[in-house]
Structure formats: C-alpha cells, structure tokens
C-alpha cells in the first residue's frame, strides 16, 4: 500500500490542522410571542472533535433541529456562540454539508445534476463536475441512476444521493437532521452502515440528530441526550463499542445496557413533551364506544 501512488497522494494532503471542530457554548434561542419571550433552547454546550461521530438524541420538539439549523447558519443564536474550527458561523455555506429528513433533492434535476449543483456553485467547470459526480455516484453504487430524476428513486436511493450531494463540495462537517426517519426499518439499517463506511473513510466530523435510540448507539462515538421545554443537554453518553460495528451488535449486553440507559433518559423527556405522566386511573369507569365497539377494555 505504501508504494501505491494513490495513497501517497492522500498522505500529502494537509493534516496539520484539525478540520471540522464543532463547538457550541451556552447556546440559547428565544423568540417573542404575545405572552412574552419563549425560550426554545436554553444554555446548550457541546462539541464534536475533528473526525468524531456525535448524535443528538431527544424527543420531537426538544430543539435538536434548532441546534442543527444554527450550525447550518439558518438562524442566529439569541445567546452563546456556535463555531466551527473557531470561526463563528455567518450564514449557510458549502463548508458544512447538510442532509435533511425529506431528501430535499431538486426534483427538476437528474441525480448527477443534483450532485453537481454544489460544485457548480463553486465555479467548477463542466468536465470537473461531471468527473467528480460520476466518481462519487460510482462509489455509492448509483452509477446506473445518474440520468434519472429523483422521482424514480426509492427513499434509500434518494438519501444516498442526498449524502453524496452534500459530500461533493468537500465539507468540513456533516450535519444530518433525522436523515433516515422516513425509511423502512431494513433500508434504515443499510443506510446506517453506508453512512458509517463513508464517515470512516472520510474522517469527517458528523453531528447526527435522531430520536431513534438504536440508531444513535449504532452510529455514534458519543450521544448527547436533550431535554425538552426548554431544550437543553440532559446527559452525555459515551458509546465505547468497537468498530467496525455489525448490525448484530444490537444483541450484545453492552448495547442492551446502553439502550436501557438511554431509554430511561429519553422517556422522562418524551413524557414531559407529551404533557405529563400517563394516568391509567383517569380512564377507569369511562366507557369508550367507537363504531359500536367498547374500547374501555383495551384502554
């Protein structure tokens, strides 16, 4: 491998300075309403070291997407600071790749045109773009689909294109907002492995937002658990499972223990987000009759 000219060229790429160090300190977000200011996120501090895979786990409505949007540059924090490699974020940019839950591919562009979009914005010429897009699509098994419109692709394929599109510009960090939330369970597992592979090869810093506990454990080096109302960091859990991880890892005792711990942390927050502990007694003696059937037994 040493005398391989390709790997030689990899060694020549600058590695002195760390790339993609995310630091969030005292991040808060408030917005005005008629009743006064509402605090959506309160005093969140977290960091992602260069090349680290970190997940944010929390119930819906806890402000995890808000945090990601601040990193992407779509909103400015009301308090605190958000930096990448010590540079404060000033608006969206191609140095931070973002992948959205609903694929967000441009339906009027072919797969290849979608992947080339970011490079076009960088002013790369036609042949450079085509070569880059073809190479990346080839490596993710999408070569046969490069001239298809996204409409024709399955959810998993669309999200693969979304990942490739975000990577094509060579971003320092990758931000993923529940990227596999709309996929079926099997596709989801495969996509998690694909993402892990890409991440291990690229050594890129990843911040991954999810509400799926298993997904967070399987993918991450560390998991931040967020609390709801207002959103804040509740716990930080280190995932010390060996890599590469196989899907069967979810049956190991370590994994099960992590799952149990995270589930406990999350449950409290989910209940808070729902508006309180379920009270089974409240429904006692209440007859629920729907479509001629008595549902009180089931409740």
């Amino acid at each position: 491998m040493i005398d391989d000219p390709v790997s030689m060229s990899v060694d020549q790429t600058p590695t002195e300075q760390p790339r993609g160090h995310i630091r969030v300190e005292g991040f808060g977000l408030r917005y005005p309403t008629l009743e006064g200011e509402v605090e959506a996120v309160h005093n969140v501090s977290l960091h992602v070291r260069p090349g680290e895979f970190v997940s944010i786990l929390g119930p819906s409505g806890c402000g995890k997407s808000t945090l990601l949007n601040a990193l992407a540059g779509f909103l400015t924090p009301s308090s605190g600071s958000v930096t990448v490699d010590d540079e404060p974020i000033r608006g969206p940019g191609a140095d931070r790749g973002m992948i959205f839950q609903h694929y967000s591919l441009f339906p009027w562009m072919t797969v290849r045109q979608n992947v080339e979009f970011g490079l076009k914005m960088k002013g790369k010429d036609r042949s450079t773009r085509a070569l880059a897009a073809r190479t990346l699509l080839g490596l993710t098994g999408l070569s046969d689909f490069e001239d298809q419109y996204p409409d024709r692709l399955s959810g998993g394929m669309k999200q693969r294109v979304g990942i490739v599109r975000a990577l094509a510009t060579g971003p320092r960090i990758l931000l993923l907002d529940e990227p596999f939330g709309a996929l079926d369970a099997q596709t989801r597992l495969i996509m998690q492995q694909i993402l892990t592979n890409i991440w291990q090869q690229l050594k890129i810093s990843v911040l991954f937002v999810t509400h799926d506990i298993d997904e967070a454990i399987f993918l991450s080096d560390r998991v931040y658990v967020m609390s709801a109302k207002p959103g804040g960091i509740k716990a930080e859990v280190r995932i010390e499972l060996d890599r590469p991880r196989e899907p069967s890892i979810s049956n190991t005792a370590e994994f099960v223990a992590l799952r149990a711990r995270l589930m406990q942390l999350i449950r409290e927050e989910s209940l808070k987000a729902l508006g309180g502990e379920l009270n089974a007694d409240a429904l006692k003696g209440v007859s629920i009759n729907l479509a001629g059937r008595d549902f009180s037994q089931i409740v």
């Binding site: 790997s7 060229s9 990899v10 790429t13 880059a132 490596l139 990577l167 060579g170």
Partner: peptide, 18 residues
C-alpha cells in the same frame, strides 16, 4: 487518480476509491 480535480475534495474521492 482523477486528473485535474480540485484539491478540497480530491482527497475525499481518493480515500473513497482506496
């Protein structure tokens, strides 16, 4: 090695290829 690629993502592609 893809010739004439921009430096910033060249490394990424090569690593992927490798």
């Amino acid at each position: 090695k893809p010739a004439g690629l921009p430096r910033d993502w060249q490394a990424d592609v090569v690593v992927l290829a490798n």
